[in-house]
Simulated assay, not measured.
Amino acid sequence: MKSVSQCWNIADLASLARKALPAPVHAILEGGADDESAMARNRAAFADYALVPRVLNDVSQVDGAATVLGQRLAWPMVVAPTAIAGLFHSGGEVALARAAAATGALFTLSAMASRSIEEVAAAAPGPKAFQAYVFRDRGITRAQIQRARAAGYGALILTVDVPIPGNRERDRRADITLPPRLGARTFAAFASRPGWCLDKARHPMRLANFDDHCPRDGTSLSAYIAEQFDPTFNWADIAPLRRLWDGPLVLKGILRPEDACRAAAEGVDAVVLSNHGGRQLDTAVAPLDVLPRTVEALARRGGAAGAIQVILDGGIRRGTDMVKALALGAAGCMAGRPGLYGLAAGGQAGALRALQLLREEYGRDLGLLGLTATEQIDAGTIWRVPGPA
């Protein structure tokens, strides 16, 4: 089997990850909601745009740096929060955070991480954000936010598109739970990946930021997580959370321009256009499809509130995807699965390879477009491809 150093794009790492993971675990990584059409549209949306290069410009020096969520980054990438990354490799969130720091990206730690807020902060020196859910027990949410602030995380990202869990049928067909359990249907799949099984035996699954709250009665982590989401969470809850956090506050899971404008009115600093990787509401609109209208709606608001940043999450697999998102008005891009492919394929080295590939592609694409800086990307950089007549 080839190594991560022989992978030349994110698709290569995804293929290697599939070979490293038991089929039920791979289903968690790759699965979406229902028929998975929203997940597919996230990727397909980028094909609706073509890039338009400028020529005869000096591109001997290209700088892809950008300021995202108050942080000056080497390139406009935010590593998305992904729950229980330790499921795919014991390096988990520490490995991902170190890879992000090494490539100059911003790392986001999920509240549902397998490594603690403090452990990740101590292990990785780069810029970090903390992603929170508003749970039924508001005390858990407040405590995690306070811990993140004390540990030096620079931004707080509230995920707002999970009032209830989505219907992930691929997970059900795979008969997968957290932590994974052996059964008649899954024994062969796990037995075929002894390396993964040994890794999990040495590093058991846990929700590190819930050590004082996880059930001791045999309830699975899957069931526990599902019980924590609060369907009553609403706009009135934003102001109290704003008072808990004095840094950049972000809402992740916005898909309507009017919701982005409402977020601006509530004092939010940025929004992440996201359909949760296609894992919540199937047939939901792709974030790229609503990006131009969202940016226009915020611009019409005018003033400081209209200037909140918009980050695009969903379907990023290439540097050209990033360029297209920025040309449509995004301040930065967020991606989760690419880093997890690398992590599953080769631990920290694989995660680093994934982000290095994307960063190299992004810088090369700027040069091929005749651009020398991220700020030069504009609406003229892309062309909407006419659809079928």
Rank of each mutant, 00 (worst) to 15 (best):
S3W: 05
V4K: 11
D12A: 13
A14D: 12
A17K: 05
P22R: 05
P24H: 06
I28G: 05
G31W: 05
G31N: 11
E36A: 12
A44E: 15
D48F: 07
D48Q: 15
A50E: 14
L51T: 04
L51H: 03
V55F: 13
L56S: 11
N57F: 03
D58H: 12
A65T: 14
T67A: 08
T67L: 03
M77V: 11
A85I: 01
H89I: 00
G92R: 07
E93F: 06
A99G: 00
A99W: 04
A100N: 02
T103Q: 13
G104M: 00
T108D: 07
S116I: 06
E119Y: 01
A121M: 10
P127V: 09
V134M: 09
G139E: 15
R142Y: 03
A143G: 05
A143W: 09
I145M: 01
I145L: 01
A150E: 10
L158R: 00
P165A: 13
G166P: 01
R170Q: 15
R172G: 02
R173N: 12
P179H: 10
P179Q: 11
R185N: 13
A189W: 00
A191E: 06
R193I: 12
G195P: 12
K200S: 12
R202G: 07
H203M: 10
L207F: 15
A208D: 12
H213F: 14
C214T: 14
C214S: 15
D217R: 06
D217Y: 05
G218C: 08
T219V: 07
S220Y: 03
T232I: 05
W235A: 14
P240F: 08
R242Q: 08
L244R: 05
P248S: 05
L255D: 09
P257V: 03
D259P: 13
R262S: 04
E266S: 10
V268A: 11
V271I: 13
V272D: 02
S274W: 12
G277E: 09
D282H: 09
A286S: 15
T294N: 12
E296G: 10
A297T: 04
R301P: 05
A304S: 14
A305P: 00
G306Q: 11
A307F: 01
G315P: 00
I316V: 15
M322I: 14
V323G: 03
A327M: 05
G329N: 02
A330L: 13
L340Q: 01
Q348D: 10
L357N: 08
E361D: 15
G367C: 11
Q376C: 01
D378E: 09
D378V: 10
R384M: 08
P386H: 10
